[in-house]
Structure formats: structure tokens, C-alpha cells
Write a protein that binds this DNA or RNA. Structure first.
Lengths: 192, 192, 192, 192
DNA sequence: CATGAATGAGAGTTCATTCAT
DNA sequence: CATGAATGAACTCTCATTCAT
């Protein structure tokens, strides 16, 4: 199927160059289809991008949901798993994640941008609700849940960025451990 | 001075459209100079961008340094001030910050990109060293300091993004409080 | 029959957008057939267009012939009927007529264009011969019959164009009356 | 000046191919400037086209005005001059005139199209007013002046089209004479 | 010091046409 | 008899950059 080849190629190219520098020519070339085929399958660049982002976000949500909904696990373990899933996604398809969480700035067709933002918000809300519930049960400190959710996602993304450029300084386990500690306990020790 | 007008205009335009969508034409127009003048004062778009970023990052570092170096203050207060300073910068010139911390992906001339990344790293190192020292003194938990530094900056940026789109849901004080709590204490309560 | 549906749809689309802006995609869509079916039934866009024009011109000729050949009527009445028939065609399917009489400029495959021009000439000749005969019988003034024929057709088309954009200024009867007066008597009064 | 070269080349290319088939590439080539230069001097194809048409129409109006306003001449002579001027324009730059009077169909940017239509209407109004005045003075028959004006222009254009394809059949003088007769006296002789 | 006309490579998009089914 | 996925050439337009002044 051309469509699949295009999506796959587009993911690569968008990841490597970001939205604006990604060219339909290169996507077509990598997908080994003619440029016209892109436009036969997708209305335009923005919509192709949207498709990519939508799918990636949906994948994250699905994976995380699946893993958390199974059995009732402790809040601590839930957080650990959310962190691990996000790291997986970010580290595997690093730039797709980067695009989703960061490069949704300006210059993309507003309608498409709005849709993507809504999708992203959905994901944040999913985490936000988890935190909200934890708060009600007294497991989670008193913070604005959505601020915490978006803050944590930003932290993971940003830390991964650093990690990817300095892999010689630490292992993935150390990364994960540091982030888990930071997110659950915060910076400060409980010294009296 | 043309140079100052250009820098000011460039900051605006890069902020509004991001690096790729910002056009030299618009920068020249806003600076009220001819297009050629841009190239008389700067070698090219990438270098102009670098200048902007450099200055912005330097400003953040200077401000923060100045505020922290004065007197010896508690680590808690230091963190609070770092958070406040970053929020100030991010919320005031939101998009410049967004560019610095996020849009440094691909498609920018590598040499320039590397310089900017180095600059960013410098800033992270500054925070990282603060944490390192806190760690040695036992005030800061055992996490990779640079991971923590980049994670925290990402958290602030990301949370601000959310805040800026949902200002009706909370005040700036609540934002700051949530972030401070999150960063110092983490998510979990200390229930036995 | 697919062919009929296509012709009908093509007439609509060519009328609405003109030859160049009419797309085979839209014709296929409106005809509710697949795009390939167009090429199964017609060699290409130009030939499809030719078919439309041919049919439309044939219709005008037939209608007019039929109405004039029946009985022997005065030259005045013949002219009145020619005007009326043309107005009917032009005002009903305004844009098909517009295409036939005007948009046969350039950019259409020469072979097809030539055929269409021949068809148009045939129609003009039909009117030209009527005038020629009137001239021989002394009813018609001494003008080049073909110039008169093409001039009259152009006048009708152009006046209709104006009428269609300014229908509030006059009725169809007034339009017809003005044109009849103009064509039979000319502009000038017979003042001594 | 690039601008003049472009306008000149554009006039040629639009004339030869009509609006839709005229390509910016060809205009640039003929003007011997780079493609970008077109867009440096004109916002886009439609506006370039508008400039051409505007200038051509203005020329016709100016020429005709100048010739008629000088001295008070008989209505008959006025008509003769209008016919002659139009024939001059149509026969000299045949296709520009064709574009102006006919090809303003669909598929051109609406705003530009509207401006051109307004310009064309201005020209028609100029003739329409002449006829109106003649009517008040009893020199011109009782017809809707604007219908007559647009009809006459259409007649000239259409007759010229025929003439240009059949120049071997008649001279320019015969063409002009036929049209003058047709327009002033109409088709019918004044036989009792 | 500064200008702005000119450039040209490259972008996204359209669309008549083909062909295996 | 009909399909529709696939094509690729051609299109309009953008924009960082150059250079004569």
C-alpha cells in the first residue's frame, strides 16, 4: 500500500527535519512513490503531518492505558510505568515525540494545529485525571493536576533530549531512576 | 543604530513565527531598514538567530546569577528564585523562550545550531552545578544533576505553555506554587 | 449510460469553470463515475469538450432551422426568431454559449480547436446565407454577410452578458426589443 | 527597468495563450528576468494580469476620449470614430482585446476579476452615455443604451475575429464599412 | 553605512493521463 | 464495461542571499 509507505516515510522525514524543513519531495522519494501519490492519499502536507501525530499520540495513549488498566496497582507503580512508557516512545522515535510535545509552534495550518493540540490535551488530561484521583485519595500532593501533568511530560522530554546528547555519561536505567526520584520525591531530601 | 533595531525586530518575528517561518523580509520591514542592511550587519539568517538566542540566554543567566550570588541563601530559596526567574522570562517573552528551549531541533545550519546548543548547555550547567553542590551538602536527593537541571527547565517551559493556554483556570501564584511543590517535594505525599 | 452522465456533467463543469479550470476529477465526481471511465468513453479532455460544443452548436442550428424552414415567413420575422433562439440558448445555458462563442482562444489542442471552429463557422454560415439571400432579394443592406453574421452573434452574446449582470435594470423583453431594433434599424433615427 | 520588460512580455504571453495557459515561467523567460523578479514587481499572476488589462483599457478610453472631445462633431462621425478606434485596438493587439472583452470568465481571483469588470464597465458606460445623449437629442433610436454599448463592442470584437481568420475575403475598409452600416442603419433596407 | 532590485533554487500543489485489475 | 490508484510534468509562489550603487 502506498499509504503505509508514505506514512512511514513521512514519520522519518518529519522526525529528522521538523515540520517546516521536511519536504514533500523527500517524503515521496523515501516512500518510493511519485509526488502526486502523496496528494492522492492526503490532502496536503499539514494533513499528512496531522495523521502522523495523531497516530503517534494514539499509540502512546493506548499503550499506557492498556498497561495501567489491567490490574489495580499502586500509584507509585503507575507513575513508574507512565515514565517508562514515555521514555520508550521518546527514545525510540525521539523526534516524532519532540515534534508532538514541542514543535507545535506556529506556521502550521491553524485548523490542523488545533486538532493536534486537542489530541495532545487529551493525553495530558489522561495523566491529569490519574493525578486528580491520587490527590483525592491522599497519595498525591496538592498541586494543580494539569500543571503537574504537562510539567512532567515536559520534564521527560527535556531530560531525554539531554540524555540523547550525552549517553556516555549515564545509562538508561540511571536516567529512568533520576526522573522517577525527581518526580515522586522532588529535589529536596527530608533532612530536619 | 540599525543593528539594535534589527535585533529587536528579529526577536519579535522569530518569536511570532518560529525560526523557519520567520522571513528576513518581515524582519527588515519591522526594523524599518532595507533588506540589504540585515546582511550588512549579520552574515545571514542563522547568525542573526544565534545573536538573538545568545542574548536572551545571557540575560537569563545574568539575572539569575545576580540574584543568587548576592548573599548566602537557603537551597530552598535558591530553587524558588530559579523557578521565579525562569517563569518571568518564559511568560514575558514566551516565544523566545520557546524557541530556545524547544525549537532547536533540525534544519538550522549545524555550526550555528551547535553554538546555540553550547550556550544552552552552559545555562543548564549553571543550574546543574548548583544542584551538584546541594547534593554534596546533602540537601539535594541523589539524582544525575544535569538530568535534573534539563528536566526542571523542560517542566517549567511545558507547564508555562499549558498555563498560557488556560489562564482562566489558575493564577500565576498557583502556577508557581504547584511547580515549586512539584520540584522540591515531588508528587508523592509522605504517608506511612 | 455512463456516456450520457459524463456529457451532462461535463457541460455543467465546463460552463461553470471554463475549459482550463474545469477538471476531469470534478466531471467524474458530478457524473458519479470513476475517473477512468471518462477515458474509457472519451480519448481526453479536449475531445470531451469538443463533444459538448458540437452537441450544443448542433442544437442551436437544429432548433433555428426547424423554426425557420417550416413556412415562408418575412425576413423581419426570421431575424426576430434568430435573435430569440440565440437569446434562449445564451440565457439558458449561459456559460456553454460563452465558451462556444468566446473562449475558443488558445491553449486547446489545435486539432480539436480547428474542428470546433469549423462547427462554429458552419453556424455562422447558416445565418450568413440567410442574409445573403435577403441581400439578393433587396431586403438586406449591402454588408459582408459573414461579417454581419458574426457581428450579430457577438452582439447578442455580449449584450446578454451585460443583461445577466444587470437584470434589475431591464426585462428580457426590453433586452430582446433593444437588440431587435439595433439589428434591424441600427442606431440612427431617420431624421431628415 | 525590469517592470517594463515584464509588462511587455506578459502582454505577449497573455495574448498568445490566454490567462490560464500563460505561465509565469514563460513571461519571465520572454522578459529575460528571473522568475523571482516577477514576484518582486507584482504580487502574483492575477495582479500582473490586472495591470495589463487596466493599462490596455485605459489606453482605449484615453485615445477615444481624446479624439471625441476635441471639437463638436456629428453623432455619425462620433460613431465612425469609436468603431475605428476599437478596430485599431482589436486588430493591433488582437488577443489582449480578446482577453479583455471575452475571457473574463471564471477561474480568475475574484477580487481582481471584479476590478477588471469594473474597468470594463467604465468603458461601456462611456459609450453608453454618448448614446444616451444622442437619444435625448433624438439622433439615436430608442434602445437601452448600455445594451447597445455592450452589444456594439461585442459585435466589433466578434467581427474582427472573423476578419482575422478570413482576411483574404475582404479588406479592412470593407470590414469597417460593413460594421458602420450595420451599426448605424441596421440590417434592413427601408423598402416600402 | 546602507540600499533595494534582482536572483534562482526549491517549496507545495494540481491535474490530465495511464494501466493493471 | 468500468475502475481508481498511481503518476510526473508543470504550475504558482517564497525567500535567503547577492551586488552594484
Amino acid at each position: 500500500m502506498s499509504k503505509d509507505k508514505i506514512i512511514h516515510a513521512a514519520m522519518e522525514v518529519f522526525s529528522e527535519h521538523g515540520y517546516h524543513r521536511a519536504s514533500m519531495d523527500e517524503i515521496a522519494m523515501r516512500a518510493q512513490v511519485a509526488k502526486g501519490t502523496l496528494y492522492y492519499n492526503f490532502p496536503g502536507k499539514a494533513q499528512l503531518f496531522k495523521t502522523i501525530v495523531k497516530q503517534a499520540l494514539q499509540d502512546i495513549i493506548n499503550h499506557t492505558c492498556q498497561d495501567l488498566d489491567n490490574i489495580s496497582i499502586s500509584i507509585e507503580e503507575q507513575i513508574r510505568r507512565i515514565i517508562r512508557h514515555n521514555l520508550d516512545v521518546i527514545l525510540e522515535s525521539r523526534n516524532v515525540a519532540h515534534i508532538i510535545f514541542n514543535e507545535l509552534s506556529n506556521g502550521i495550518e491553524p485548523e490542523v494545529l488545533d486538532e493536534i493540540k486537542a489530541l495532545k490535551l487529551e493525553y495530558l488530561s489522561f495523566i491529569g485525571e490519574l493525578l486528580e484521583e491520587g490527590k483525592r485519595n491522599g497519595y498525591i500532593v496538592d498541586v494543580q493536576p494539569m500543571i503537574a501533568a504537562s510539567g512532567i511530560i515536559g520534564m521527560l522530554q527535556s531530560a531525554c533530549n539531554y540524555y540523547l546528547s550525552h549517553q556516555e555519561q549515564m545509562t538508561r536505567e540511571e536516567l529512568e531512576h533520576s526522573l522517577f526520584t525527581l518526580i515522586t520525591q522532588g529535589l529536596l531530601t527530608n533532612l530536619e
